[in-house]
Amino acid sequence: DRIFMTRTEALEFLLKAHQTAVDKIGHPSHKQTPADHAAIEALDRLLLDVRARRVDQFQINASAAQIIVTD
């Protein structure tokens, strides 16, 4: 599946995904793992790359739809 978004929409989408990941590892019942921190770092890099126009398409994980940034 493909989803087309403007750059602004894609950045909002990534910010929400980032916040969800941060909230998940901050929850008291969740045991933090290196994979959790790696996922947040990957989202940080992706946010910067989309914002800087170095990336025009991405996929958060293998089961997610491919996001295509349109400007």
Rank of each mutant, 00 (worst) to 15 (best):
D1S: 03
D1K: 03
R2D: 04
R2C: 09
I3F: 06
F4W: 07
T6Y: 02
T6N: 06
R7N: 03
R7E: 02
R7L: 13
T8L: 11
E9H: 04
E9D: 06
A10L: 02
A10N: 00
A10W: 01
L11R: 01
E12R: 13
L15A: 12
L15F: 10
L15N: 08
L15S: 10
K16M: 10
K16Y: 08
A17R: 04
A17Q: 08
Q19P: 01
T20F: 12
A21C: 05
A21E: 08
V22K: 11
D23L: 05
D23Y: 03
D23N: 12
K24G: 06
K24H: 08
I25W: 06
G26Y: 14
G26N: 15
H27F: 08
P28R: 06
S29V: 07
S29P: 08
H30M: 06
H30A: 07
Q32M: 15
Q32F: 13
Q32A: 14
T33R: 06
P34G: 07
D36G: 04
H37T: 14
H37V: 14
A38K: 09
A38T: 07
E41C: 08
A42H: 13
L43G: 00
L43K: 00
L43V: 03
D44C: 09
D44S: 15
R45N: 07
R45D: 03
R45F: 04
L47Y: 09
L48C: 07
D49S: 04
D49G: 12
V50G: 00
R51P: 02
R51L: 13
A52K: 09
A52L: 14
R53D: 06
R54H: 06
R54L: 11
V55A: 04
V55W: 01
V55C: 05
D56E: 07
D56V: 13
F58V: 01
F58G: 00
Q59S: 09
Q59A: 06
I60A: 03
A62F: 08
A62Y: 08
A62H: 10
S63G: 12
S63C: 09
A64M: 13
A65D: 05
A65T: 12
A65Y: 13
Q66Y: 15
I68Y: 11
V69L: 10
T70P: 02
T70V: 14
D71V: 09
D71H: 14
